[in-house]
Structure formats: C-alpha cells, structure tokens
C-alpha cells in the first residue's frame, strides 16, 4: 500500500517533468536560430558604431582573431579582436580592452583602430563608475568619448596622452579625473599594442 503511494508520487512528478521539459526543449529548438541572429545583430551594431558598415565588406562579427594576454590591453586572458576588411585589404581592428584603474574598478572598452594607427572610435561597454560623475564616458551622457576619434600616437604625442590636469591634451570632466585618466591611459596602451603587433593581427 505505502509503496504504491510512493511510486505514484514519483511517476506523477516524472510525467510532469517529461511533458514540461519537452515543451521547453521544443521551444528552444524553434527559437535557437532566431536568437543567434539577434545576438549577432547586437554585436554588429556595437561594432558598426565604431566602424560604419560602408567602410568594410567582410563579415566582421565572424572575422575574429584571438590575441594573447597583454598588459597593454589590461587583461590576463586572451582576448578577441574583430577585423574589418574592404576587398580583402585590412581596414581596421576592434579591440576588447580594459581600463583596470577606474574609480570603481575595471572599465571595459571597445577600441577601434584603423590600419594606419589612428582611432576609429572608443566605447565604454561595461563599467560601474559613479553615476552622475564617471558615467560621462557613456555616449548617452556626454560626448567626451568621441574626443578620441582620429587621434593617434602622433597626435598628440605620447607624452601628451594625459588629461589636462596632468598636463596632457585630454579634457577631464567636472568632479572626476580618475575615470578619464584611466580611459586615456587604456586607449593609449591599446594604440601601443597595435603599433607593436599590427603585423600579426590580420594573419
């Protein structure tokens, strides 16, 4: 009697699990490709913000390379770079680089660098800087991040890759110097990395 009761409970729950899981599995199966498309589109949109689509003709989302860990990119792990080409020729590369010394920890950046070493654009993709102060690095909050556009290690000189307070060329914003300082440094280092490794990246 008791054993039968226990068995019924088990079977009951089992049946529900089978039905439920099957239902989920089927949905997953039918939506999988659509979700993958979505994820790809979002990534592409982020990359296109740095490199307008008309400047390249390759599948930048899938034309990735892995670069080894480097202090210049602010990480201890291998990172992915996205390569842009036009008619097979390398146009630009987009780095996932990290500014490690933000006011509240790491700031994740996307840094687009043209083949000639000038900057296509910089975006902060993930950070936890003080709202209202350090978050002026977001494009929605201020235009500050666009001030990197078309800069390179020649303009200004590496010694001037500093915020104005430290005697450099880049603005800080009111009430916060640490965040811009960290980003300026990280972008500069990314450029240095590109300078040193530009040959290998498009291999």
């Amino acid at each position: 009697m008791n054993k039968k009761q226990i068995l019924i409970s088990g079977v009951f729950l089992w049946v529900f699990a089978v039905v439920g899981t099957t239902f989920v599995a089927v949905t997953e199966d039918t939506t999988r490709s659509k979700i993958e498309d979505n994820e790809r589109l979002v990534l592409l949109r982020n990359l296109n913000a740095l490199l307008p689509a008309e400047q390249l003709d390759n599948d930048i989302v899938n034309d990735t390379g892995t670069v080894p860990a480097s202090g210049l990119l602010g990480t201890q792990d291998d990172t992915i770079v996205y390569r842009a080409r036009l008619e097979g020729k390398p146009i630009a590369v987009i780095f996932n680089s990290i500014a490690p010394n933000g006011y509240s920890g790491k700031i994740h950046l996307l840094v687009g660098v043209y083949a000639d070493g000038s900057i296509a654009g910089v975006r902060a993709v993930k950070h936890s800087e003080t709202p209202g102060l350090g978050d002026a690095i977001e494009t929605q909050k201020s235009d500050w991040i666009f001030s990197f556009n078309s800069r390179s290690l020649d303009s200004p000189k590496p010694s001037k890759w500093l915020v104005k307070k430290d005697g450099g060329d880049f603005d800080q914003f009111t009430g916060a110097t640490i965040t811009p300082r960290a980003i300026v440094l990280a972008v500069k280092k990314t450029l240095l990395y590109y300078q040193q490794n530009s040959d290998n990246i498009f291999q």
Partner: peptide
C-alpha cells in the same frame, strides 16, 4: 515545474 517551464519559454520567446 509548470512555472519554470512557462518562464523559460517566455524567456526564449523574448530573446527571439
């Protein structure tokens, strides 16, 4: 189980 299945399906649909 029912709720989890419903939510997972909604999540998948939303993602899609």
């Amino acid at each position: 189980l029912i709720i989890a299945c419903v939510v997972t399906v909604i999540e998948l649909l939303m993602k899609a």
